[in-house]
Amino acid sequence: MDPNTGGATALRLLGNVRALDEKQFVYEAMLTGWSDQQSSRGLATPTIRNRILAIRRFESFTERYPWEWAPVDVEDYTTRAKSKARPAAKSTIRAFQTIIRLFCDYLCDGRYEWARECERRFASAPQQICHVWNTTAHLVDYEGRAQRRALTYDELEQFFTAADARVESILAQGRKGALAALRDAQIFKTIYAYGLRRAEAVGLDVADLRPNGAAPRFGRFGAVEARWGKGTRGSGPRRRSVLTVPELGWVTEGLAQWVDQARPRCTDEPTGKLWPTERGSRVSLRYIDLRFATIRDQLGLPSELSVHALRHTYVTNLIEWGYSEKFVQDQVGHAYASTTAIYTSVGDDYKTRMVTRALSRIYGGNDAHNR
Rank of each mutant, 00 (worst) to 15 (best):
Q127A: 13
P264G: 09
Q38T: 04
W321I: 02
D208R: 08
C118W: 00
E278S: 14
I48K: 03
A181P: 03
W258T: 02
L196R: 07
Y350R: 13
L204N: 13
G203M: 01
V132E: 15
G144L: 03
L171E: 06
C266W: 10
S284M: 02
P276M: 02
L14Q: 15
Y27S: 08
E253S: 11
R86M: 08
G254W: 04
M354A: 13
R263I: 06
W69F: 11
Y194C: 00
I319T: 12
T92W: 11
L248W: 07
N317W: 08
F221M: 10
E325W: 03
F103R: 02
K90I: 10
T135H: 03
R239E: 13
S284N: 01
V242R: 01
R240N: 01
P237V: 10
A150V: 04
K230Y: 02
L13T: 05
P302C: 09
R210M: 05
D164M: 13
R101M: 09
A29L: 06
S169Y: 06
S284T: 03
T32H: 10
S281P: 03
L209F: 02
L31M: 04
R265G: 07
V72E: 14
P66I: 06
R145M: 12
K189S: 02
R86S: 10
I191W: 05
A19K: 12
R41W: 09
T79A: 12
W228V: 04
E75P: 07
G280D: 06
G364C: 08
L43F: 08
V72N: 15
T277M: 09
R240P: 01
W228K: 09
T271G: 14
D105T: 11
K84G: 08
I99Y: 07
A201V: 05
R148S: 10
S306R: 14
Y363P: 07
Q127E: 14
R149G: 07
G333D: 00
R265K: 12
S169H: 08
K351T: 11
A81H: 15
Y323K: 01
S360I: 14
G236K: 15
E22A: 08
A337V: 14
D289Q: 15
E28H: 15
R120H: 07
F122G: 01
T161Y: 05
Y153M: 11
G365R: 03
D348G: 09
G110T: 15
G174Y: 08
R166Y: 06
A172E: 14
L156V: 01
L305M: 11
A223C: 08
I170W: 05
T252M: 02
V132R: 13
D268T: 15
D208T: 04
E113V: 13
D73I: 05
A123I: 11
I129H: 00
W67T: 05
D141E: 10
E253W: 12
